[in-house]
Design a protein around this nucleic acid. Structure first.
Lengths: 190, 190
DNA sequence: TTGATTACGTGATGTAGATCACATTCTGAT
DNA sequence: ATCAGAATGTGATCTACATCACGTAATCAA
């Protein structure tokens, strides 16, 4: 019940649910396991779930003209991920999500999320705050993109997620920073 | 009562409140008027409100080393703006908000927002969706930043907000695109 | 163990956009 | 009406980073 406790503690940071309420809440999540390299959401797919990461590391990324990859988010344990644009607009996925390492996730359908939000004010509150944090983080990253050069962004990233350096190959870090792998390589060998 | 109706119609797109509920909701908003060039939030300020734009055009921007300005958002009627990082973390403002034109806004304190969210499930729902849309838009802009060159981003911006072209000076559009005014100038004179 | 695939490093060269410098027009205050 | 300060245009030069090209090391499957 590792997964259940992880989610429970995560939720408890924002709202308090009784044990019963949480059990009910949790019953809507479907545990899933993936192997390294497996695709969770592929471009063009219908998207109806979002994912809470229990273990492992995912990436949410966009591919331009089948050539360049840009990583929107690395998703580590206790992070949520999906193609939210597709999920909320009911459009085919333009963002891919796949597994950098073996991973376990909890899957929640959009329908169930809305149902739970409607049933429990507290759940709606939780999701408002979660999205709010995401929004703030996204604005911050945008600013960093406009304001900082690659070196600064690289240092920022490593300060924020020191685990990443050993966990994910360098070309993925480059794809997150929006820089070529060659430039990144030259950058930290100097 | 222009302002009241504008807000009412805006809210009604997401949730239904009774006339009484909306009156109560609306009573927490404070109308304010500003002149072109006036500062609403300045870097370093304590931030405890967010603003719903009734008329005019605001900009939310960051200034780097007192030199470069980057515009995070133009706020037009029915848009919300503030320094959300400062608002949610209770830290001094790092984002400025000021008026590109004369403007009328409705001001809502963070305390009142949270109170209203707690009192009305529907209000919490509204704010969740509003933030959600903001998050999706922010991710989209980030992707565009990584993936597209200045020309494409410029065309995207004008397609999205045709009014901007005549309303705001070009160097502000450049500051939104994260490009020098010279480069932008060369771009649309060719 | 071997061959294929992926990760990574590094030189040479190209280019989008920044920066600097200066001229011109527009706008707003007195 | 006039003057000061914005806003804009445009050339010359500079630079961060991309792209191409090629090499080596690491990983993995049969």
């Amino acid at each position: 019940m590792e997964a259940k406790i992880l989610l429970q503690e995560h939720i408890a940071k924002t709202v308090s649910l009784t044990e019963e309420e949480f059990d009910y809440f949790f019953s809507h999540f479907k545990p899933m396991s993936f192997k390294k390299g497996q695709t969770i959401i592929g471009a063009g797919d219908k998207v109806d779930c979002e994912y809470f990461v229990i273990s492992g590391c995912l990436k949410a990324f966009f591919i331009n003209d089948e050539i360049k990859m840009y990583i929107l988010q690395f998703a580590m344990p206790t992070w949520w991920t999906s193609d939210y644009t597709a999920l909320y607009n009911q459009t085919p996925a333009t963002i891919n999500v796949d597994c950098i390492t073996d991973a376990e996730v909890l899957c929640l359908t959009s329908t169930d999320r809305e149902k739970l939000c409607a049933e429990f004010h507290q759940v709606e509150h939780f999701f408002r705050w979660r999205t709010n944090k995401g929004y703030i983080a996204s604005q911050k990253r945008l600013l960093s993109f406009m304001n900082n050069n690659v070196k600064t962004r690289y240092e920022e990233l490593l300060a924020l997620y020191p685990q990443l350096y050993n966990l994910v190959p360098k070309h993925l870090i480059a794809a997150y920073l929006g820089v070529s792998r060659e430039t990144l390589s030259r950058l930290y060998n100097s």
